[in-house]
């Protein structure tokens, strides 16, 4: 599908649409770069500020002050944060790819690159859509478990 060059109808990309697309691509590149930098900074913050988090875990009380518990909790918290940062980081690359390809396509007047750039935007939208479905499913599951808990209490 993506490699097809044929136009179904004579909708050309005129100069106004072109300027809109350039603007969209530039802002998307900016947002993608911000997203990537912020995600990497958060990972660095977790790595270097991790020891602070680790030391604070001992203040949970005597019951949870064992070293093995602290290590486990620290590793769990780190994995949890890294997982969510990765979830946010992945679409930033799709966004960056869309922006770069769009700018190149318009500069080089390349139909193939234009198709690929819109494909990247499609993947970006699809990614967030699927993530939304996953989050809704988790909420629904929590609701079902809560209702079951209330029913069988």
């Amino acid at each position: 599908m993506d490699t097809e060059q044929s136009s179904l109808f004579t909708l050309g990309i005129d100069d106004i649409t072109q300027s809109h697309l350039i603007s969209i691509a530039k802002w998307n590149r900016f947002l993608a770069i911000i997203g990537i930098i912020m995600s990497l900074l958060t990972i660095l913050g977790l790595l270097f500020g991790g020891s602070y988090l680790f030391s604070n875990l001992s203040t949970f009380g005597n019951r949870y002050s064992s070293t093995s518990y602290n290590t486990g909790a620290f590793a769990g918290a780190m994995l949890f944060y890294v997982f969510f940062i990765a979830l946010y980081l992945i679409p930033c690359f799709f966004r960056l790819s869309f922006a770069n390809k769009m700018l190149k396509a318009i500069a080089a007047n390349d139909q193939q690159l234009l198709n690929e750039s819109f494909n990247q935007l499609k993947i970006f939208s699809k990614y967030w859509g699927i993530l939304t479905i996953v989050v809704i499913s988790i909420y629904a599951l929590i609701l079902i478990v809560l209702l079951l808990g209330i029913m069988f209490r």
Partner: peptide, 20 residues
């Protein structure tokens, strides 16, 4: 408005737009 460029809204772009 006349298209200044050879690039058009191709079948692939239409499919991507529909999905988006």
């Amino acid at each position: 408005a006349p298209s200044l460029f050879d690039i058009t809204i191709s079948e692939s772009v239409i499919y991507s737009f529909e999905q988006i």
